[in-house]
Design a protein around this nucleic acid. Structure first.
Length: 773
RNA sequence: GCUGGAGUGGCGGAACUGGCAGACGCACGGGACUCAAAAUCCCGCGUUCUUCACUGAACAUGUGGGUUCGACCCCCACCUCCAGCACCA
């Protein structure tokens, strides 16, 4: 066995794949043709960092790892079509990643700019936003990340912000509400207005974004983010600049949730565009450069943060919104701002209007007079895809001293990763040190130029791997459009909720871009999404970074692949978190052994009375119905498996009294019912039964309602809603008769004596409830 | 604070459309087989009371109300836990 780091594939993955695999097998048995792309994370951070530590060539190492992971998955018996496997770390996949990048570059959807990046001094590398936890590196929880300014490539996801948000309507019902909520929140649309304040006396405009233009007469100062471009101009002395720098540093040191609102006065003033008043310009650390315009108008009377800031720095509070059921607040006695809508007051000609109306009219006025307009702002930011890493798709750009950033011509794709690169861990892109890679002639003018040394984020790979899977060996295009039209959008996607705002936004974005370049016609990649719960171990999510993983290999060793897989489905419904308690696996293992023994000893002709045949067949068909329903509607595989256990228990009890023919036919159906969950056991049994071919390609057992029908049912009898007895009747017994039998029942009678029967509620075939007084 | 979700035995969980609460499994206790152990099989297993016993009763689905013949399920208020976002103007 190859060596590999702790649990590359762990029970969290196994659970995820077991759900998809069970469903795929079931769909096959129901006669569907199923394409089943499986993604797994085998590239990127953990692999590269581990390699870095051991100072080995990441390519060999990672490929070995992928190979091992594949072995693990094959050992676990996932019915994935390996011939279509998409390996995203091969030059052919790079080619198409680069091809997409060039298409986006042509359309202005890929651009380069200087940006602040998260930097972990411990790892000596950059981190993506999502890898920063509480201001620290996710791998070094006590090491705060630093910010480093670096030029980097962005994909313009913001160009699709509106569409990504609006198209979520198409996903409603098919996607879990919490994922939609997270995406809505992440995209963060807010409707308001942008307003220009003139700087006095220079006349430079400061643009602010507000959702509450109706409160603008209450604006008592302007606050700029410390990183705002105007700050340099307004804070011209050395002391002032040092003060700004200190503010930025102090803010960086603060812990999340305990921020203090720091402020600096600029000694400058701006002119209020509505009232003409002269208001001071401040710098505040709570104003974010990354949202809106990086500058706000502070309305302390009607915004909590502004209130806190202005009170702390002695800036006046001017109430201009009157509550619908109250009076305009009195500044000296105000304890908190009034943040709701109300009636506008002290606002010139706008006084007396309702907030909602004032918002519209004031924005229109600003627009007419050229100092503002209604505006919509999104929280979503463009996707920074540059990584200073060896392992990834090289960004196909060449920097020429004369021509600037020149895209690599399509005919020269793919740009391959050079071999034999030493990973130094110094935090610069490893490719930078490879002269043969870096130095190339400019594609435009032919003079010496240098390649881009960064590689792409691995989320680029996962954004479209499932498209490629449908046509994995295509060398002329990323995939064939007609093939995609046949398979897309994906009917059912299954994954962890941790992808809600990463992979699942990126792949939606990628789909929209591909649609716009006429490669595909579907607008969304995934019609229905299922998010399985996490696997919890020792109170925390099972994950590589936390090191609390349970290796599937150990489980396979001890209980077998089928038991490990089945337990991951049995222990909890798939959408709920699963607390990993290893003790439970033995129960599933015992169950499989019982089935195995039952089927193998009944595979050949046996003898038996046959008096229990009817009952056994009834239970079998009730089970078929139950599992079929579970698959078709709600995927509660835990109850499906429980039903199979119940059936097996009953069959073992009745075994002696079953005829040979019935035993054999039940063995056949039982084996098939187990096929989606326990592939190895099933296949073994299938062959033991003298059958050939894969069990999971057999037709799913057919439910026969006549065989499932009960001859006699037990109906509960209640008195005043309390259970007092049961009556046994044939199904379909008329209500009158049920009522009669209920009254005469020996258990029930004592509760009726001396009482007056008010009424009797009889639910056909279900229940009788006698109401007495 | 906002958003989404969850609270049922010692534990994981079941109860599908408002109709027998605790399926199935784990753990535990008792027994059979065995020199012994493992494996396997059988029985018991919410709490309290009641009966010598068979049995029977009351109370139980986070808390408090409500609707209903009947509520784990629907409505109102609250508590706790988990997850995500969080100075978003």
């Amino acid at each position: 066995m190859l060596p590999y780091p702790s649990g590359k594939l762990h029970m969290g993955h196994v659970r995820n794949y077991s759900i998809g695999d069970a469903l795929a097998r079931y769909m096959w048995m129901r006669g569907y043709n199923v394409l089943h792309p499986m993604g797994w994370d085998s590239f990127g951070l953990p692999a590269e960092n581990a390699a870095l530590k051991e100072n080995r060539n990441p390519r060999e190492w990672t490929l070995g790892n992928i190979g091992h992971m594949k072995v693990q998955m094959q050992r676990l018996g996932f019915a994935f079509d390996w011939s279509r496997e998409v390996t995203t770390c091969e030059p052919e996949y790079y080619r198409w990643n680069q091809w997409f990048f060039l298409k986006m570059f042509e359309r202005g959807l890929a651009y380069r700019k200087e940006a602040l990046l998260n930097w972990c001094p411990e790892c000596a590398t950059v981190l993506a936003n999502e890898q920063v936890v509480n201001g620290c590196c996710w791998r070094h929880e006590t090491t705060p990340v630093e910010q480093r300014a670096m030029p980097q490539w962005f994909l313009k996801t913001t160009a699709y912000a509106r569409e990504l948000l609006e198209d979520m309507k198409q996903l409603e019902g098919g996607w879990p509400e919490r994922v939609l909520a997270m995406q809505r929140n992440w995209i963060g649309r807010s409707e308001g207005a942008e307003i220009d304040f003139r700087l006095e006396p220079a006349g430079t405009r400061i643009r602010v974004f507000t959702t509450r233009i109706d409160t603008i007469y209450g604006a008592t100062c302007i606050i700029l983010a410390p990183e705002h471009p105007l700050v340099d101009q307004l804070m011209s002395t050395a002391e002032q600049r040092i003060a700004v720098k200190e503010m930025i540093d102090a803010t960086a040191r603060q812990e999340t949730g305990q921020e203090e609102k720091l402020g600096l006065f600029t000694d400058c003033y701006a002119i209020h565009p509505f009232s003409g008043a002269r208001i001071p310009i401040w710098i505040g650390n709570f104003v974010l450069m990354g949202y809106g315009t990086g500058a706000i108008m502070a309305v302390p009377a009607h915004d909590e943060r502004d209130f806190e800031f202005c009170r702390a720095h002695g800036i006046p509070v001017v109430p201009v919104i009157r509550p619908l059921d109250g009076e305009l607040a009195d500044p000296p006695t105000m304890k908190e701002p009034f943040v709701e809508y109300g009636i506008v007051e002290n606002s010139g000609e706008w006084s007396g209007l309702a907030s909602a109306e004032a918002r519209k009219k004031m924005a229109a006025y600003a627009s007419q007079h050229g100092f503002g307009a209604a505006a919509i702002t999104y929280r979503l930011k463009d996707w920074g895809i540059s990584r200073q890493r060896y392992w990834g798709t090289p960004i196909p750009i060449i920097y020429c001293p004369d021509c600037g950033a020149v895209p690599v011509p399509e005919k020269d794709l793919p740009v391959r990763l050079p071999a034999g690169v030493k990973i130094t861990g110094e935090g610069r892109s490893p490719l930078e040190t490879v002269a043969s890679f870096m130095n190339v002639p400019c594609p435009k003018c032919g003079r010496p130029a240098r390649r881009e040394s960064d590689t792409m984020d691995t989320f680029v790979d996962s954004s479209w791997y499932f498209y490629r899977y449908c046509d994995a060996r295509n060398h002329r295009a990323p995939f064939d459009s007609a093939t995609i039209a046949r398979w897309f959008p994906i009917d059912q996607y299954i994954g962890g909720v941790e992808h809600a705002i990463l992979h699942l936004i990126y792949s939606r974005f990628w789909t929209k871009v591909m649609r716009d370049i006429a490669l595909i016609r579907n607008e969304e990649p995934v019609k229905r999404l299922f998010t399985q719960g996490m696997v919890i171990k020792d109170g925390a999510k099972m994950s590589k970074s936390l090191g609390n993983v349970v290796s599937p290999d150990d489980m396979v060793e001890r209980y077998g692949a089928d038991s490990a897989r089945m337990y991951s489905l049995f222990a909890a419904p798939p959408d709920r978190d699963l607390d990993w308690q290893e003790d439970g696996v033995s129960g599933v293992s015992k169950f499989l052994s019982r089935v195995y023994r039952f089927v193998t000893r009944n595979a050949e002709a046996t003898s038996g009375s046959g008096e229990a045949d009817r009952d056994a067949l009834r239970s079998l068909h009730q089970t078929i119905q139950k599992i079929t329903t579970d698959f078709d509607s709600r995927w509660h595989f835990n109850t499906s498996i429980a039903a199979l256990m119940e059936l097996t228990n009953e069959l073992l009890e009745k075994e002696e009294r079953l005829s040979s023919d019935v035993r054999r036919s039940i063995c056949r159906d039982l084996t098939l019912l187990l096929a989606p969950f326990a592939p190895y056991t099933t296949q073994d049994l299938w062959e033991t039964l003298g059958e050939t071919g894969p069990a999971f390609r057999q037709p799913w057992p057919k439910f026969d309602p006549q065989l499932a029908e009960q001859d006699e049912i037990e109906i509960p009898v209640q008195v005043n809603g309390k259970l007092r007895g049961h009556i046994r009747v044939a199904p379909g017994t008329p209500k009158e008769q049920l009522e009669q039998l209920a009254r005469e029942n020996a258990k029930v009678k004592p509760f009726l004596e001396g009482k007056q029967i008010v009424k009797v509620i009889t639910v056909f075939d279900r229940l009788v409830n006698i109401v007495v007084k």
